[in-house]
C-alpha cells in the first residue's frame, strides 16, 4: 500500500532512513489527502505528514494556490520564524505518490472546541489573541520576491466574486442581499499595501499546544491582497465556537490582536478589519450554500454536507448582529 511507496521515497532523501511505519489517513476529499506516518531512523522515529493530491487529481480548484505553492509558503514561513512545520520533501514523479509534499509532524491540538475547553490549554488561551497578532504581522512581512505565483484579490473583486457565487445558487436571501449592499457601500478600495494573505487563518487551522501556537496550517487559499483580510477572517463569529464575546477565535479581544500586530511593527486599520469580518461572515454563509448545492448534485448524499447547508442561517444572524444590532 502507501507505506511501500513512502518507504522508497524517504530512503532517497532522508539520510539514514530505512522505511516508514504507522501510515494512517487523517482526512481526505476526492482531490486532496493528509496522511500521518513515522520515518524509521537509527536516531529514533521521525513524525511526518504527507499532503497530496493522488495521481490523476493534479488540477487545483480555481481559488486554491496548489500544493506546490503551499509547500513553498510553509517553508518560507518556517525560515522567517512564523510557526510552521518544516517541509522535508516536495514529491516528484519518481516518488509515485501523486503531487504534494512531506512535512515534519508538529504535535498539538487543532480541534477548536478542545482548545477552547480543555484544561491543558487554560494557561495559553488568554495569550493567544495577542500572539496571533504577532504571527500575522510576521506572515504579512514574508519577502514578496520569494513568494510563489499567487492570485491577487482586492476588496472590490471579492465583492463581485461573492455576488456571482451567491446569485449562481439561486437562493434568495434578503440578509445576504443586505450584506452585499453594505459591502459595496463600504468598499475600502485598494489597500495602501499589498502583502501575502493567508486566506484561511482561523481557530481550527492552527496547531496549538500548552505553550501557544505551534504551527499555522492550510495555506491553500493564500493570495496577494489586503493584509487586514486575515485580521477580519480570524474574528468571524463562526470561528469563535460559542465563545462569542471573544472575537479572536474565541480566545480574546480585537484590542489584544491589534496590540500584538502593532507591537510587531505593523499598522492596523480597524475599519478595514470590520469590512473583512462582514465579508468573511458572508463568505462562510455562501460556502454553506455551496455545500447544499453539492449535496443535491453529487450522488453520495452526504448528510454532513446537507447539515452544513442548514448552517447558513448562523451567518445570517451574525450578519444582522454586525449590520443591524439590537439594543444592548
Amino acid at each position: 500500500m502507501i507505506e511501500a511507496e513512502l518507504s522508497r521515497s524517504v530512503q532517497r532523501w532522508c539520510p539514514g532512513a530505512t522505511g516508514v511505519t504507522g501510515a494512517a489517513k487523517l482526512s481526505g476529499g476526492a482531490s486532496q489527502e493528509t496522511w500521518r506516518f513515522d520515518i524509521t531512523h537509527p536516531d529514533g522515529p521521525i513524525g511526518a505528514i504527507l499532503r497530496r493530491s493522488p495521481k490523476g487529481y493534479g488540477a487545483a480548484p480555481t481559488r486554491a494556490a496548489g500544493l506546490a505553492a503551499e509547500a513553498q509558503l510553509m517553508q518560507l514561513a518556517f525560515e522567517a520564524g512564523v510557526p510552521s512545520p518544516r517541509v522535508m520533501h516536495v514529491l516528484s514523479a519518481e516518488d509515485d505518490l501523486g503531487t504534494g509534499f512531506i512535512m515534519q509532524r508538529v504535535e498539538g491540538e487543532t480541534i477548536a472546541r478542545k482548545i477552547l475547553r480543555d484544561e491543558e490549554f487554560a494557561a495559553a488561551r488568554p495569550l493567544l489573541a495577542r500572539q496571533i497578532g504577532g504571527i500575522l504581522a510576521g506572515l504579512h512581512r514574508l519577502p514578496q520576491d520569494k513568494l510563489p505565483e499567487l492570485r491577487s484579490r482586492g476588496a472590490t473583486q471579492e465583492i463581485s466574486e461573492f455576488d456571482r457565487d451567491y446569485r449562481s445558487l439561486n437562493w434568495p436571501k434578503p440578509v445576504f442581499e443586505l450584506a452585499l449592499r453594505w459591502l459595496r457601500d463600504h468598499d475600502p478600495g485598494p489597500s495602501v499595501e499589498t502583502t501575502l494573505v493567508h486566506g484561511d487563518f482561523r481557530n481550527g487551522n492552527l496547531i496549538i499546544g500548552p505553550d501557544g501556537v505551534r504551527a499555522v496550517l492550510d495555506w491553500e487559499l493564500a493570495h496577494l491582497g489586503d493584509p487586514m483580510e486575515d485580521l477580519g477572517w480570524v474574528c468571524v463569529n463562526s470561528w469563535r465556537f460559542g465563545e462569542i464575546d471573544k472575537p479572536v477565535g474565541g480566545f480574546g479581544t480585537r484590542d489584544e490582536l491589534f496590540a500584538g500586530y502593532e507591537a510587531a511593527g505593523r499598522k492596523v486599520d480597524p475599519a478595514r478589519v470590520k469590512f473583512w469580518e462582514v465579508m468573511g461572515t458572508l463568505r462562510w454563509g455562501i460556502m454553506c450554500g455551496g455545500m447544499m448545492q453539492r449535496f443535491r448534485e453529487s450522488p453520495d448524499h452526504s448528510m454532513e454536507r446537507a447539515m452544513i447547508g442548514r448552517r447558513a442561517s448562523e451567518t445570517e444572524i451574525d450578519l444582522l448582529r454586525l449590520l443591524s444590532p439590537r439594543g444592548s
Partner: peptide, 25 residues
Amino acid sequence: LWATTMDKLAVDQPNYASYKRELGR
C-alpha cells in the same frame, strides 16, 4: 429580518450561541 432569522435559527440551530444571546434579549 430579525424575526425571520430568529424563526430560522429556532429550527436550524437552537443551540447556536448568537441565537441564545438574542433570544435572551
